[in-house]
Design a binder for these strands. Structure first.
Length: 493
RNA sequence: GGUCCCAUCGUCUAGUGGCCUAGGACACCGGCCUCUCACGUCGGGAACACGGGUUCGAACCCCGUUGGGACCA
């Protein structure tokens, strides 16, 4: 019989969800969907010092936002729980006892100081720092004596000679000589299970079939396989993917810029765009297509297709992908996405005409590559945010433009209210009346009406602004021009 | 220090012994479009880390060197 595919994503709740972890979650999720398996979320919060409930909440929220959903997890779903390591301590204790009984692990009383000097000594002699096994064969008597003295032992795994071989779905056959592995700790002196131990117990009891995780765990794997064997269990299949690096080839961290999924959300990246980007770091669709829907990705995805070298994060590529997604989004939906950013920019969106808002958003979508950029354009459409940029001012106060401005104003004042498609005819009319065309006219209008030198197409902006607002803004521009004129004439006299 | 992983344009990658004078995408540069930015479109520069083998033939296989990364504490 074929064992059902069960995979897990197991973050430590010590902070925000990193995009690297998001990518690991994604690979697991994709594999589960591809194989019609189960995706499980487990929280590795044995580090009580650094783990917080707030972080757990944030991680769950980020995963949901990304559209990565779990069938079993700490929020009550699933029959193989609990799904928080901090609630599984008794399980670890039971299996540790079992191993102790079988002589697979032993109590070690060596002090941190001794361990440290041992390590230094090894290092200085050009040897690998590895536990020397001093407590390996302590007698019952010695153990009770030490314990009576108040010493709390750690539990160490007895590593025997031999080769540990396993097949990694991404790297192929892996060989490790157990000689390179010292007797490692499975339970700390405070009774807390060590990572390599807890992880095995959890994966086994949750019936995990495939462990898909970062490369950083590759050399932990032989230790874990040893634990599986000692307990008489069959290890799962492993797949270790490389970690994302920063532009300097060091592990991606805060000094390289935004690393958290939530930061990208706040900046205005779309979840599907982030996911699409993340899967492209280390994987290419056989078709060569780069913008792919989740369905298409699931269809084409395979673990063996993952690259073995570590990818470097490229903000530019992410932005490009996000642009593609923004442009694909229909304007009603985009308006919904943009609402929070408008509010943040100080626009009372609930007092606005929904249709007007949708029109603005539809227009802006050609110009945005992240949602938060909408704030840059607020001044075009909302008077309370309107202001003249320096370059725009320069255009407006130029003496040769003064007359043209006045002409434009006259035309506008004689105009009936603007209709939706009256942009082109108005512009034609202005060309005739001012005798200007091309850049000289459009640039002037753009400066006076939007206060900026760049933005969406002018023809499409005009009807959205309406006659009154254009007149108001152009009058401001004229006043400025007048002021400048007075100044310079004063200067001359 | 030991063990392990990795090595194609600046970046993500395609490529699994002849289809490769190495393909695509982002970025960059230039043309076109155009009131601007962006989009779009057309074009350009740009890579098999190095050295040995194996082979009629190597980006692809083997060994070494160099470089990067991880783990071990």
């Amino acid at each position: 019989m074929i064992t059902p595919v069960r995979v897990r994503f197991a973050p430590a709740p010590t902070g925000l969800l990193h995009i690297g972890n998001g990518r690991t979650a994604l690979f697991n999720y994709l594999f589960a969907r591809k194989e019609r398996g189960t995706f499980i979320l487990r929280i590795e919060d044995t580090d009580a010092e650094r783990s917080t409930d707030a972080s757990i909440e944030a991680i769950l929220q980020d995963l949901r936002w990304l559209g990565i959903f779990w069938e079993e997890g700490p929020d009550g779903k699933g029959q193989n729980g609990p799904y928080r390591q901090s609630q599984r301590l008794s399980l670890y204790r039971d299996d540790a006892e079992k191993l102790l009984g079988k002589g697979k692990v032993y109590k070690c009383f060596c002090s941190p100081e001794r361990l440290e000097s041992l390590r230094k000594e090894h290092l200085s002699r050009g040897m690998m720092p590895k536990y020397d096994g001093r407590c390996r064969s302590l007698s019952e008597g010695e153990i009770s004596k030490l314990e009576a003295g108040g010493l709390r032992p750690v539990l160490r795994f007895r590593v025997d000679k031999g080769m540990i071989v396993f097949e990694d779905l991404i790297h192929g056959r892996m060989n490790f000589d157990s000689d390179g592995i010292g007797d490692f700790i499975i339970v700390r002196s405070d009774g807390m299970a060590a990572y390599n131990f807890a992880c095995v117990i959890d994966d086994h009891s949750m019936h995990i079939s495939h462990v898909i995780r970062g490369d950083d765990h590759l050399s932990n794997t032989p230790r874990q396989i040893l634990v599986y064997r000692a307990l008489g269990w069959e290890p799962p299949v492993f797949a270790h993917h490389p970690l994302i690096l920063g532009p300097d080839r060091s592990p991606l961290s805060k000094r390289h810029g935004a690393t958290a999924v939530s930061q990208y959300r706040e900046e205005g990246f779309l979840p599907d765009a982030l996911l699409n980007y993340l899967v492209l770091l280390g994987w290419a669709s056989p078709s060569g297509e780069e913008i792919l829907s989740m369905e298409e990705i699931v269809e084409a995805f395979s673990l063996s297709g993952l690259s073995r070298n570590a990818p470097i994060h490229s903000r530019k590529k992410l932005e490009w992908i996000n642009t593609q997604y923004i442009r694909k989004t229909d304007k009603d939906r985009l308006t919904q996405y943009l609402l929070p950013y408008l509010e943040k920019g100080g626009i009372a969106v609930n007092q606005l005409d929904g249709k007007y808002l949708t029109q603005i958003c539809g227009l802006l979508k050609e110009n945005l590559f992240i949602l938060s950029q909408v704030e840059e354009y607020l001044g075009i459409f909302f008077d309370e945010k309107f202001f003249l940029e320096e370059e725009a001012k320069a255009v407006l106060v130029a003496p040769q433009n003064r007359e043209a401005l006045q002409t434009v104003l006259r035309v506008l004042e004689g105009l009936a209210e603007m209709e939706g498609d009256s942009g082109p005819s108005l512009l034609t009319q202005l060309e005739e009346k001012t005798g200007l065309k091309g850049k000289s006219l459009y640039g002037l209008l753009r400066a006076g009406i939007t206060g900026k030198m760049k933005g969406p197409e002018l023809v499409r902006i005009l009807p959205l602004l309406g006659k009154e607002r254009m007149i108001k803004r152009l009058k401001m521009a004229l006043e400025l021009s007048q002021l400048k004129k007075d100044e310079s004439s004063k200067f001359e006299s």
